[in-house]
Write a protein that binds this DNA or RNA. Sequence first.
DNA 1: CTGTTAGCGCCTTCAC
DNA 2: GTGAAGGCGCTAACAG
Lengths: 337, 337
Amino acid sequence: MKYITIKDVAKQAGYSVGTVSRVINNKSVSKKTRDAVLKTMAELGYTPNAIAQSMRTNTTKAVALVVNDISNPLFSKIAKAAEDVLRLQGYFLLISNTNNNPDAECEIVETLRQRRIDGMIIAVTDESNERTQEILKNVNFPVVLLDRELPQEYDSVCDDHFQGMEQAVKYLMDLGHTNIMLISGSEKIRPGRQRIEGFRSAFKKKDIPVREEQISEGRYDSVYGYEQAYKALTSHNPPTAIIAGGNQIFTGVLRAIRSCKLAIPQNISVIACDDIDLTTLMSPPITVITRNLRDIGRVTGELLLRRIFEKSMDQTRKHILMPTELLVRESCQNPGS
Amino acid sequence: MKYITIKDVAKQAGYSVGTVSRVINNKSVSKKTRDAVLKTMAELGYTPNAIAQSMRTNTTKAVALVVNDISNPLFSKIAKAAEDVLRLQGYFLLISNTNNNPDAECEIVETLRQRRIDGMIIAVTDESNERTQEILKNVNFPVVLLDRELPQEYDSVCDDHFQGMEQAVKYLMDLGHTNIMLISGSEKIRPGRQRIEGFRSAFKKKDIPVREEQISEGRYDSVYGYEQAYKALTSHNPPTAIIAGGNQIFTGVLRAIRSCKLAIPQNISVIACDDIDLTTLMSPPITVITRNLRDIGRVTGELLLRRIFEKSMDQTRKHILMPTELLVRESCQNPGS
DNA sequence: CTGTTAGCGCCTTCAC
DNA sequence: GTGAAGGCGCTAACAG
């Protein structure tokens, strides 16, 4: 089973390969010729070989989205939205999964480079990893950072976790909470840092000191959420409210609360970061700090496309900040009651 | 910013391109030469152009996984597992999303064909769609169907939804239920068909007739789950147990149960298909018909790899059936109590 | 073990 | 508007 080539079409149609190429690429050919060529292409079931086209034109019409966890619904929603705008311009979106492994990440970026993609959206696993930075420096295509900051400047689309967290803490304080705990993912990536800063800022504004135990900073997974929440809830001074700094952390927090046989919000108030099925389907539904993932994906895709089109790489970098929002539901109440 | 080519390396190292090519591909070269070439490659920051390699070798070392909903955690888990075995053999996994749209699906398969991937794993959106079948017939690489059946034979990895469903119904019957409802996704794809058949079979074995209203067959989404569950629960003869034929359907069922202010399992018993975060985090945790997604992904990837390696396409097709299992938790009880 | 060279399928300049 | 030909970067066959 062999593929039909442009030569086969040319011969069959009685034209030269150049002419066939011109109809493929919508260059100027007479209507009569075009129709004839199109007809033989259909007859032969010919489709141009994208590899050969890439080789010749030095573009692959493919861009990559590199994330650390593809099973996180957050990313799949962003990916969907980005893909929509990309596909409209004829670009193919490759989704790659680093599994939170910096080495795997480096390998993937390297592979992508070899495969000559036209651009990349990446949420690096660890902003401080030097090897990642080094490899990123060597790529020859535009890069857009997704909610990340790197010493070397890149275009980026970030979310305002700072203001979302500040608002959440203020909301809890207004409800009467002061013993609030934040279980955050690592500070090694921007979201964790921003959330912790927002948390501190809210306390500072009220002139209330933050105790060491109120912030735990670690991993973005369920086990970590469980461990930290359980430890805090069974301590001699348990928090009256917990903010889970990520959706995986949140599921762990939930398990811990169940283990301790506590009721939400009667015994413990809870706020989650990012809205998932679970937050709305719980009884009671959970108050969340949320963001518009579709918008984020769309804007990110658009920014990358713009960079690909302009191709003069030496422009100043563009940074877009997307809003976050506190969605009040029924998981928080006055700690005294 | 230009890419370094094999010529640059050859010139710089003082060898021919053939020799450089040989060290790239680990062919026989003297150790001295290899070291020298490797050194200059590193110095120049050279990486082979995968496009050119593909052009020459007629292989892309890329395979695709085409699914209808990338945000479904089911697929991302399968994808992860498949990717692991594929990557080990040097293959790159492209994940594509059809969004349950048969036209988009056709377009994607067409694009993949143009891009000359080496193989494809696909869960088609609609098994009866003729255009899909036609396009699939024309691809020049091995195809493995993921939990789907097509008139034209392909290799496939399917799950035994029939036996899982039968077992679930039997379990409910043993508990004393007879007015059991199945809210299923479309029969147009294998899982829906299998589940409905399993449901009927369980009733047949007990010689109990199945009433029309006990099975609703429609879409795999949350809204459908809600509508059907709500309608049934507010009817004059509400079911004592509901089986949700999919994880999205399940979330809808949950909403309906909440709307009706029913308690699980006191007022209504519930079984879900496929285990997700939600099923274990609910109180009470939900009994599910589950399957090992890691195994499925691994086996699927392995089957595809085997087909790619053997390259003689005219073998008889291989069909692998993966087991399902009823995981009893606390969401079902005797309907009388 | 190593150098030389043809050609993969396509696009693009240069003639006509 | 159309044909002829070179070459993108690489591999593989053939010589040496």
